[in-house]
Design a protein around this nucleic acid. Structure first.
Length: 507
RNA sequence: CGGGGCGUAGCGCAGUCUGGUAGCGCGCCUCGUUCGGGACGAGGAGGCCGUGGGUUCGAAUCCCGCCGCCCCGACCA
């Protein structure tokens, strides 16, 4: 076996999209289902989502939001109320038109067919997002300025009839959270929109170890019906951009269309200012592409379904029981430790498989720390520690008690290493650019990084450049983001400008 | 939704041109030898060849419809 052999074929460099699919398969995260464009999320993948959910939910609650649940099916007429918004979704919705199935037996073949009957007077749309149905509820619930702000979040599935699905990144049905809030004033609504934007940025950084560029979408790229769309843009290992989360200020557009109004402090009827914001199972696709390597998945510790896997090494029958007991005892001790407020997630793999097979399985699944304990380790009171952020062959043999003490620190160290690695990669692949010529030639590269340019162009100019190079303005980065400067004059119009646009290919 | 490719065992594929009711590798199960390591040997299980129809004595193979998947576009909150 050659030293270069990788657990995943092809490698990232050989065929990135195929590598991505193979990582998902090797880590047993998800698979395509019989239902078009939809995936089955398997336990190892769903566990990641549950952790994302729990940790984000805690942050939403801490910032004053409450969870609620709204119907999956939205009356068609609700979408008709908000024209601009509805146009943005119209072509990709699944529509429910019947409410009964009738079993009909074919007299010739004897086979039973199910025929939809009972056509609905008004069809329902399977929610592509819930602005309209939640807005209708808000219209009922809000009467006075005293009812504001109304801060609601929903964990749900939504459906968009995607033409080109990709596991986790773009599936027809996906899981997400959608926050919907209503406020008395524009300022308050914008504070909310920005607060959530910041929350997403921190979550990506501190929980998923993904450094993002926070910024605002241009008018062309905005959510249909929004006055302002904020985004967090992640760069993955083929230098493409992934919009990892968005937060929208919807102005009074939706509240006027849906009559979300209230009596103000001055007694006058006013329309509320609303926001909406969300992240989805796409985060899982983003973290796979951001961190994984040619041996498979690499999980950031805070969202690892299991953080530590202990593998008993039992070469001799007479010491077998003692080794396994020792592994369980260590696991139990570790489970009593807290890592960012949560008990360590530790698994003992007692399956009767050869050690090498087990070890590689957990490498491919991306477990942050692997522990091996054999008869010799019991005698020396040491444990064999291997880390997913280090070379496969790298091993450390600390005294067991020392490891127990250091376990949570090692997890944090792994997190920091992943974040540092991803940040370094991102920064190396963002280039300042203020010349049209350099800009145009840049996109001929095989995996072009992002360009940061001074920008004062029109939406039409933006659209033309986008089409020409198959790129988009990912965002206009926030002032607080420190990126290298590239002159003061727009690379297209030559006008002086303080605005910087970040261009790139995206998923 | 346009252009191309493909549906045969859990996975990857051969067989299709030149019809004669299925084969290889990996995986899986059993036994044995191994084993601080992605082991080896022997034996075994598993498929109405995507689906509906047609041609034929006979169809994985030929013809027509449908469904699904993959790649490239268009679309993508």
């Amino acid at each position: 076996m050659s030293a270069e052999k990788t657990a995943i074929t092809p490698t990232r460099a050989q065929d990135f999209p195929e590598w991505y699919q193979q990582v998902i398969k090797a880590a047993d995260l998800a698979e395509n289902s019989e239902t078009r464009g939809c995936m089955v999320i398997k336990p190892w993948g769903y566990g990641i989502w549950e952790l994302i959910q729990q940790q984000l939910d805690r942050r939403f609650k801490a910032t004053g939001h409450q969870n609620a649940y709204f119907p999956l099916l939205i009356p068609l007429s609700y979408l008709e109320k908000e024209a601009e918004h509805a146009e943005g979704f119209a072509t990709e919705c699944a529509v429910v038109t019947h409410h009964r199935l009738e079993a009909v037996k074919d007299p010739v073949t004897g086979k039973t067919k199910m025929i939809p009957t009972g056509e609905l007077a008004e069809p329902y749309v399977i929610r592509p997002t819930s602005e309209t149905i939640i807005g209708a509820a808000f219209a009922r619930w809000i009467e006075s300025y005293r009812d504001l702000p109304l801060l609601i979040n929903q964990w749900a599935n939504v459906m968009r009839w995607e033409m080109r699905p990709r596991l986790f990144l773009r599936t027809a049905e996906f899981l997400w959270q959608e926050g919907h809030t209503a406020h008395e004033t524009k300022d308050e609504a914008i504070v909310e929109t920005r607060m959530i934007h910041g929350l997403y940025e921190e979550f990506l950084r501190d929980h998923l170890a993904i450094p993002v560029i926070p910024g605002e979408k241009t008018e062309n790229e905005r959510f249909p019906g929004a006055d302002m769309t904020l985004t967090v843009e992640a760069m993955v290992q083929d230098c493409k951009a992934i919009q990892a989360g968005t937060s929208h200020y919807l102005g009074q557009n939706f509240s006027k269309a849906q009559n979300i109004s209230f009596t103000g402090r001055d007694g006058a009827i006013q329309h509320a200012h609303t926001t909406s914001w969300g992240v989805s199972t796409r985060l899982i696709g983003t973290l796979i592409m951001a961190h994984s390597d040619d041996d498979g998945l690499v999980l950031p510790p805070r969202v690892a379904t299991q953080q530590i896997v202990i593998m008993p090494i039992t070469p001799k029958e007479d010491s077998r029981e003692a080794v396994i007991a020792s592994c369980h005892a260590l696991a139990e001790t570790l489970r009593h430790q807290l890592h960012h407020g949560e008990p360590l997630r530790v698994h003992v793999d007692v399956r009767d498989l050869s050690g090498g097979v087990k070890k590689w399985e957990w490498i491919k699944k991306g477990v942050p720390i692997r522990i091996e304990i054999g008869p010799r380790d019991i005698e020396t009171r040491k444990v064999c520690v291997q880390r997913r952020d280090q070379a496969v062959a790298a091993k450390d043999f600390p005294v067991k008690e020392d490891f127990i003490r250091q376990a949570t620190e090692i997890l944090d160290e792994i997190h920091q290493n992943l974040l540092a690695r991803a940040t370094e990669f991102r920064d190396a692949n963002i280039t300042p650019c203020d010349s049209l010529e350099a800009f145009n030639s840049h996109w001929a590269n095989e995996t072009p990084g992002w360009l940061l340019t001074p920008w004062a162009g029109t939406p039409d100019q933006e659209a033309e450049i986008s089409k020409q190079h198959k790129i988009t303005i990912r965002c206009v980065p926030l002032d607080t983001v420190l990126l290298p400067h590239a002159g003061e004059k727009c690379f297209v119009t030559g006008k002086e400008t303080a605005t910087r646009a970040l261009w790139g290919r995206s998923y």
